[in-house]
């Protein structure tokens, strides 16, 4: 459904994305995972026909994004990162306007369907300026879904929402993802794991990894990271812990706790706990922490460097 071939985009001298080649098949939910500024939005803007790539091309729903832009746009629903709404229109007016631009034969039914899908039927006559952020996001989603597009492109669909709203929006996406091809971007690892069949990790405009969330998880659990908290200063404890077999990368955090990593096949935590107590410290906490996105990139980029 989406086939990108060597997409490259330069903004003046700065290269935003470089030689991106990837694919999203029919009915697949593909996640674009990467930090801010990685090139996710740029890629999506190219795929939706908003801007042309500097080099490369892509086919979306079987049409070339450069040669047949209008045909592509007919078949794509797009939710940009900043949800584009007209605050001085009512929800219904706005969606009707968008449906008209999509040449919907029965625009009003389409609006009703889309509103039902995002659970906003009761707010149809309210002004958009009076809606909460979460509701606006849902209206944006309704706008993208209006014409029942074959391909949905969602740029950070859950950004800036409160936890309850995030859950709502995710469940809507899961619902639509059952039958449509979705490309969504996020910088939250767990979100990508929950929603996507396949994840593309993008950093500094390049794809650094591409896999199913399960495989990716397995690759990433090359190390587990643990935080150790004791009463008082932990400075003297650091060398003691570092001596334990299997422990690596011990460092003292700004808040006075100790962080270290260990390989998952040898759990060193009991030994660490004993060592801390033996050294005369009151052990308060020993807690595993997930890898942050930055650490994942570091790890993946190192991994790819090693492979080469």
């Amino acid at each position: 459904m989406i086939q990108a071939i060597g997409l490259t985009k330069d903004y003046g001298a700065r290269r935003a994305i470089e030689n991106l080649t990837f694919e999203a098949r029919q009915g697949e939910v593909v996640g674009f995972l990467g930090p801010n500024g990685a090139g996710k939005t740029t890629t999506m803007r190219i795929l939706t026909g908003y801007m042309p790539p500097t080099y490369g091309t892509a086919k979306v729903a079987g049409f070339d994004i450069l040669e047949e832009s209008i045909e592509v746009r007919r078949r794509v629903g797009y939710l940009p990162e900043t949800v584009p709404l007209y605050p001085d229109m009512t929800v219904f007016e706005y969606l009707k306007f968008m449906a008209d631009l999509r040449h919907a034969p029965n625009a009003e039914d389409m609006v009703d369907d889309a509103l039902a899908l995002v659970g906003m039927e009761d707010r149809a006559d309210g002004y958009i300026s009076n809606l909460s952020k979460g509701m606006r996001q849902r209206i944006g989603l309704a706008q993208a879904l209006l014409h029942k597009p074959e391909v949905l492109i969602l740029d950070e669909p859950t950004i800036g929402l409160d936890p309850a709203q995030v859950v709502e929006v995710r469940s809507i996406i899961r619902e639509i993802g059952k039958e449509r091809t979705i490309l969504l971007s996020t910088h939250i690892l767990s979100e990508a794991q929950q929603l996507c069949d396949r994840v593309l990790i993008i950093n500094k405009g390049r794809i650094v990894a591409e896999d199913t969330p399960e495989n990716l998880q397995a690759r990433l659990v090359g190390a587990e990271r643990v935080i150790l908290r004791v009463r008082g200063e932990a400075d003297d404890l650091a060398p003691v812990i570092a001596k334990i077999k299997g422990v690596r990368d011990v460092d003292i955090q700004p808040d006075g706790t100790l962080a270290f990593q260990f390989a998952p096949n040898v759990d060193v935590r009991p030994e660490v706990a004993r060592a801390a107590v033996k050294a005369g410290y009151d052990l308060l906490e020993l807690r595993p922490v997930g890898l942050s996105l930055e650490e994942i990139f570091l790890q993946l980029t190192q991994e790819t460097a090693k492979e080469k």
Binding site: R45, T48, G49, Y50, I70, E71, R73, R74, V76, Y78, P80, T82, P84, L85, Y86, M98, L101, R102, H103, Q143
Partner: peptide, 12 residues
């Protein structure tokens, strides 16, 4: 308002 992105990605 950012709605240009919306208009320019409709089939128009």
């Amino acid at each position: 308002m950012g709605t240009m992105e919306l208009l320019l990605t409709t089939p128009m």
